[in-house]
């Protein structure tokens, strides 16, 4: 067992424990703070996978935007979440069963995969991996690569922005 495996195990345990706290804690604001811890754990997993840009986007977008948005929504709806007796509905045992079954099914599927090894890159390839951000930027704007999905994602974002303002905005 080398050092990266130990780091992975620690980070994975922390992530899973905080994810469990997100779905089980009764105070929802605490749940949102645990969500931030879980998202940080996932960012560390991206760093372990040598995807630095994805890790930065994870911190900026998920923690900086989405988690803050969730906390704002909680504060705006705070009367409704003042310590209700039950934070889970009546079907929670079935839900736990379904979740456990999906975990078993998904891990069962991974045992069918071939035993892919961590590709040890040659020096030139490794330089390519570190220059990945530039490649990613070019790929997102080149018409023969991913310009169209990029534009579609931009349109989706602007539609979601306008839609959110239209739905949540104060009606006169």
């Amino acid at each position: 067992m080398d050092i990266s495996q130990i780091i992975f195990l620690i980070v994975a345990t922390a992530t899973l424990i905080s994810a469990l706290m997100v779905v089980t804690t009764r105070n929802l604001v605490h749940g949102a703070l645990w969500l931030i811890v879980a998202l940080f754990g996932v960012a560390v997993v991206f760093v372990l996978l040598e995807a630095g840009f994805i890790a930065v986007v994870q911190v900026v977008l998920f923690i900086g935007a989405i988690a803050i948005l969730i906390i704002f929504a909680m504060m705006l709806t705070r009367r409704a979440l003042s310590d209700e007796p039950h934070q889970t509905n009546s079907q929670w045992p079935i839900s736990a069963l379904v979740a456990a079954a999906s975990f078993v099914a998904l891990t069962g599927l991974t045992s069918f995969l071939p035993d892919w090894q961590w590709p040890s890159l040659a020096a030139s390839d490794s330089a390519q991996l570190s220059g990945n951000l530039q490649q990613l930027g070019y790929a997102l704007v080149q018409p023969n690569q991913f310009a169209l999905p990029f534009q579609v994602a931009s349109v989706l974002l602007i539609v979601a922005l306008i839609g959110a303002v239209a739905v949540a905005g104060e009606k006169k």
Partner: peptide, 14 residues
């Protein structure tokens, strides 16, 4: 992580 999130989606009231 997916299974935990699925439990949260199915079981939470809020």
């Amino acid at each position: 992580l997916f299974a935990i999130g699925l439990y949260g989606v199915l079981a939470r009231r809020n």
